[in-house]
Design a protein around this nucleic acid. Structure first.
Lengths: 186, 186
DNA sequence: ACCTGAACACCGTTCAAGT
DNA sequence: ACCTGAACACCGTTCAAGT
């Protein structure tokens, strides 16, 4: 006699996302997730291979959201304006969902990092913009320069790693400007 | 009747550093540490407040090492050459000790992040170099641009986040060059 | 087919008891 | 003064048993 389903994979992922945001990656436990969806911990394993697999699913969801944010930030008309818009969208995303953002680059247990292609897909708007700026030859190097800077900046901002003195907004704008210059002067 | 000490704080930290390097931050358990120094887990609490405190001590050790690496990379004579040397030293450090490097920016449990001033101290060579390049006014913004890029690049390189196509060494050199240009053209 | 309780191997941490 | 074993509250995960 079949037992009626009391939860679903998407509900589990959604609950996990909420927990990651409030308690961080370390705070995501199968027990919290199971409690959030109204089930006992062992039942989760009917839908998810384990904690690592769940973290990957959550991270992939976040990557999709990030990709959408970036995708709608770039217009495709003015590459210099797009570069700035992408940077601002990136920062806005990380600041509004710091837990989710941190998950993307957190050292996940046992090779549960999200699929490589999902990172590529999410950063496609950046690659298109740098291609418009520096041409196809250097587009990838330029995209790496920009994304590395943006990611590093946000990681350090979220970690409070440079709250020394000075305005962080200004520091970010400084970065955008100089990067834009360096990619258009070449 | 006093029991003879069977270990020491420095031995514990050293053992922890080794474990972080081999097993990652998540892999550092008090049990592994205690086994490595030849003691029972509860004994560690005589010298260290807990796992978080130990991680902080380890991270501070790593920060000191990084600061030394950076400090000996810059000569102080040629700021442009120093910037490149700093970037290469930074990358060499992260690649030779990825576990230790990752620890620096890992989300540590409960506010156990290393002291703010230790980050500042470690990155002082970068600040001195950018000051020589762009002047005292913009030195901090410029240092943040460089360190954010370098940190972001290494985080993504270590995470395998952009092993797509293309040469990573080349991408790194591209970044150094463009950043140097952007900081000397202003 | 899905859920559950019990169980196992692991955690961090506390504490009374030993020397 | 330092160490230990026992204990506690928590983990992730497996599995036999229920419906």
């Amino acid at each position: 006699m079949p037992t009626p389903s009391r939860t679903s994979l998407s509900e589990i992922v959604a609950a996990g996302l909420t927990i990651v945001e409030s308690d961080g990656v370390e705070g995501l436990t199968m027990q919290k997730v199971s409690a959030a969806v109204g089930v006992q911990p062992p039942s989760l394993y009917k839908r998810v291979a384990g904690r690592g697999a769940l973290l990957r699913l959550i991270a992939e969801t976040v990557l999709e959201d990030l990709g959408e944010s970036l995708g709608s930030a770039a217009t495709g008309f003015d590459p210099k304006a797009d570069l700035r818009a992408l940077a601002l969208a990136f920062r806005a995303f990380a600041r509004s969902r710091p837990g989710a953002y941190r998950l993307l680059f957190a050292p996940l247990p046992e090779d549960w990092a999200p699929d490589q292609e999902m990172f590529v897909a999410a950063s496609l708007p950046v690659l298109r913009t740098t291609e418009a700026l520096v041409g196809p030859e250097r587009a990838l190097d330029a995209a790496r320069l920009v994304t590395a800077w943006a990611h590093g900046f946000l990681t350090m901002e979220l970690a409070g790693a440079f709250r020394m003195s000075g305005d962080l907004d200004e520091a970010f704008e400084f970065g955008v400007e100089r990067l834009t210059v360096s990619l258009t002067a070449g």
